[in-house]
Nucleic acid binder design. Sequence first.
DNA 1: CAGTGGCCCTGAGCGC
DNA 2: TGCGCTCAGGGCCACT
Length: 295
Amino acid sequence: MPELPEVEVTRQSFAQRIVGAQVQTVWLGAPLRWPLGCQPGSLAGTVVGQAQRRGKYIWLPLDHQRQARAPAALPGHVLQAGSAGGLLIHLGMSGSLRFMELQQAAQQARTGHDHFELHTSRGLLRLRDPRRFGAVIWSDDPAQGLAAKLLAGLGREPFDPELNGAYLRQAWQGKRLAVKQALLAGDAVVGAGNIYACEALFAARIDPRLPAGRLSLPRAQALLDAVQATLRQALAAGGTSLRDYRNADGDPGGFQFLAQVYGREGQPCLVCQSMVRRIVQGQRSTFYCAKCQRR
DNA sequence: CAGTGGCCCTGAGCGC
DNA sequence: TGCGCTCAGGGCCACT
């Protein structure tokens, strides 16, 4: 589900409306991937800070000082060290966050797939997640404990200005793992899930089965450019909605109509007309054009 | 230590 | 219509 663009679109669609709100109550439904990690009642009275993002995680600061933190002047509001406590939220495969202002919230009844609600003075933040692979974790300090462990393994942000082809090439040096799987693993660069990894490799004309360590420097740069271009395009389209994804206003994205190879098995390549193929790599489907994409 | 596969959970779609 | 099977946007973890 939600890959980086969906998470970022979600963050952008509620961050400014919830910042400064005071938490009233927290409601928990069925268990998610991990327990919340604190007494829900202990969050009452905290003040919501500026929502940030790291990879596919949303970090929602909750400040006990009863005063909103100044909006972080971080590029892209990307989570950095030094924040105080908050909630680390992951949407898993099927999760979506919805923010409803008070009047609207009163009309939108909870359903059986809603598993977390943050009731605040400005409205209701609700996590819906049919498959419950998502997570909402309280952390006193994202530099410690479970939150730190989850964030520690993440590669660089795709729009990190210091990221370049040489970095990618070095990170994957000697790796025999297929480049598609290396992208998905996110240990060099985060954000591309199954859809955008397929799309970026198509745009860069790279065979998804190529061992990551065999990528030349120009092709590593081309791949990085393609990852960035694909994610930018998806962000502009509001993300991809195959089934469950909605932004915090409940609106679907439109990238599914722009995909060149994802989900197009057996259909003609939009560049060369040969048939788009589907293979399985690491138990995930990969879509590619065998003529356009070379080893 | 790199890489593979199981698993968390629910729902949709398909063949029979 | 119903059953059983497969597959789905992620990613942790045990195991080889």
